[in-house]
Simulated assay, not measured.
Amino acid sequence: MRVIAGSARRLQLKTLEGIETRPTTDRIKETLFNMLSPYVYDCVFLDLFAGSGGIGIEALSRGAMEAVFVEKNPRAMQCVKDNLSHTHLERKGMTMTMDVMTALYKLEGEKKFDYIFMDPPYGQELERRVLTYLSGSELLAPEGVIIVETAKDTDFAYAEELGFTIIKNKVYKTNKHVFLEPTGRKGIC
Rank of each mutant, 00 (worst) to 15 (best):
M1Q: 09
M1L: 10
V3G: 04
I4W: 01
A5N: 11
A5W: 13
A8C: 09
R9V: 01
L11F: 13
Q12S: 14
Q12I: 13
L13Q: 09
L13M: 05
T15H: 12
L16T: 12
E17H: 14
I19A: 13
R22N: 10
T24Q: 06
R27C: 01
K29I: 03
K29T: 05
E30F: 08
T31P: 00
P38R: 01
P38S: 01
V40I: 15
D42P: 00
D42M: 04
V44N: 02
F45H: 02
F45I: 03
F45A: 00
A50F: 04
G56I: 01
L60S: 09
R62G: 03
G63N: 02
M65G: 05
E66P: 00
A67M: 12
V68H: 11
F69T: 10
V70Y: 00
E71V: 04
K72N: 14
N73T: 14
P74A: 12
R75I: 13
A76W: 01
A76E: 01
S85K: 14
L89H: 03
R91K: 14
T97Y: 00
A103H: 09
L104Y: 08
Y105C: 06
K106Y: 02
K106E: 07
L107S: 06
K112S: 14
F113W: 06
F113P: 03
M118V: 07
R129K: 15
V130Y: 02
V130R: 03
T132H: 07
S135M: 08
S135A: 15
E138A: 15
E138M: 11
L139R: 11
L140E: 09
L140M: 10
A141P: 09
A141S: 15
A141W: 12
P142W: 09
P142Q: 11
E143M: 10
V145E: 15
T150G: 12
A151S: 07
D155L: 06
Y158K: 02
E160I: 10
E160R: 15
E161V: 08
G163T: 12
G163F: 12
F164S: 03
T165G: 12
I166T: 05
V171T: 13
K173V: 02
T174F: 10
H177F: 15
V178D: 06
F179Y: 14
E181A: 12
E181T: 13
T183V: 07
G184Y: 07
R185L: 08
G187N: 07
